[in-house]
Design a binder for these strands. Structure first.
Lengths: 142, 142
DNA sequence: GTACTTGCAAACAGTTTGCATAGGC
DNA sequence: GCCTATGCAAACTGTTTGCAAGTAC
């Protein structure tokens, strides 16, 4: 997702209807690097658009995924998180505070080939302790 | 998990009790590259050990994870899958047949460092169509 | 006007939990 | 004998679904 405007154009081109609910979700996601879950989105979007429902959030996320405007992360073990940045990059999951942090490689990552397979996507997940938690030394139990 | 015997020794050393149920799960997992889910394990182990319960399967998997005898994969979007091979390697998820396939790199993969972070683990997930599905051309809807 | 989207609530799947009983060490 | 593990069922969480009413185009 490069910008709200481009995203809306892309969706319109693909025949999706642009409801106010969908636009509210898109506006919340644009430039958001916090990797929100569906519940995070529901909670936040509801503040500005109180009549939105959970089903609509999921519906919108599914549509944005199909339109390749967002990617889904399964880095957490219980729920799915979403990232509007569809450029190839990795993710770090802090096992202490639960934050998901973008990891951009030094050089442009190219997805390797695997003989005989068609690769549509790759995700690289790192698990560990983030610098903030290491500094604060407020490790819960590790 | 290198072998059932080594695994049992390791668990004993760490103070875990070796119940028949746990041994049945370990024997099922040893050398198993099918990346079973908890439900798969429950179904299969039950055949040889009919009185096992779901809670015990989850309990055993949690213990094996803590003992670093297995790794958990979140490559699927709904459930967790398990791999008794704890050597660094990637995984491929076929978006057509749902199979999870081990991907071993040509050269020994080293986990990169990330300045200021402590990395405990890394997972690389590939998504696409496996060679079997490509050959069979029995693509459901893609 | 038509077809798709919404909101709601109920359903669903995977996983976790509480507790009495059983069993490893 | 102690303390942890088991089995069962119920609870819980994240996500999906069915359907009547609403709305983008």
């Amino acid at each position: 997702m490069k910008s709200v405007k481009e995203c809306l154009n892309n969706l319109k081109k693909k025949g999706f209807k642009l409801t106010p609910q969908r636009q509210a979700v898109i506006e919340y996601l644009e430039g958001n690097s916090s990797h929100p879950s569906a519940a995070d989105m529901f909670r936040e979007v509801k503040k500005k658009y109180p009549m939105i429902s959970f089903a609509t959030v999921y519906n919108t996320l599914k549509m944005l995924g199909e339109a390749k405007e967002i990617i889904s992360l399964t880095i957490g073990f219980d729920k799915v998180n979403f990232d509007p940045n569809t450029e190839q990059h990795g993710h770090f999951f802090c096992q202490n505070c639960g934050k998901i942090i973008d990891i951009f490689p030094d050089k442009k990552m190219k997805i390797e080939e695997i003989e005989g397979y068609q690769i549509n996507d790759r995700q690289i997940y790192y698990y560990g302790i983030c610098s903030e938690c290491l500094k604060a030394n407020n490790l819960d139990e590790l």
